[in-house]
Simulated scan of single mutants.
Amino acid sequence: MSALDDLKAELAKLRDEAKVRVHLGTMEARQEWEEIEAKWNHFVSQAGLHKSGEDIKSALRSLGDELRLAYQRLKNAL
C-alpha cells in the first residue's frame, strides 16, 4: 500500500467519525461538513491520478493534510 493509499484510508476513517458527530451536531458544523465534503470529493476524484506526476502527488498530499486537519477540528468541536 502506498503512502497515498494510507492517507486515503486515514481520511476515510476520520470522515466517518466526523460524519456521525455532524449528524448529531449544530448547523454550523453541518455547514463546515459541506465544505469539507467538497474537498473530500475532489481528493477522491483526483487520487487515481497520483501516478501521473509528482506535482499531482504533492497537491494531493497537501489537500489530504488539509482534510485531516479539518476533520479533526470538526470532530473535536462536537
Rank of each mutant, 00 (worst) to 15 (best):
W33H: 04
H42Q: 14
H42S: 12
D6G: 04
V44L: 05
E37K: 14
L14Y: 08
L11T: 06
A9W: 00
K13R: 14
D5Y: 09
A18S: 04
A70Y: 01
D5K: 13
S45M: 04
E17I: 15
A38N: 02
H23T: 15
D6F: 07
E66L: 07
R21F: 11
I56A: 01
L7S: 02
Y71C: 02
L24W: 10
S58E: 15
K75C: 03
L7Y: 04
G64V: 03
K19E: 14
K19A: 14
K57Q: 15
D65Q: 05
M27A: 15
L11A: 01
K39Y: 03
R15G: 03
S52D: 11
S62H: 12
E28G: 04
K51V: 15
N76S: 12
A38K: 09
M1E: 11
R30A: 05
E10R: 13
A12D: 11
E10P: 06
A18C: 00
L60Q: 04
Q31Y: 07
L7F: 04
L49R: 15
N41V: 09
E34N: 10
L69E: 10
M27G: 11
G25C: 03
K39L: 14
L24H: 10
K8E: 15
W40K: 05
K19W: 10
N76F: 10
H42K: 14
K51Y: 08
I36E: 03
H23G: 15
L4W: 03
E17K: 15
E10A: 12
L78T: 14
K51N: 12
V22K: 07
D55K: 10
E35M: 11
Q72C: 08
E10H: 08
L74R: 02
M1L: 12
I36G: 01
E34K: 15
A70N: 00
M27S: 13
G53P: 01
W33L: 07
L49E: 09
R15D: 14
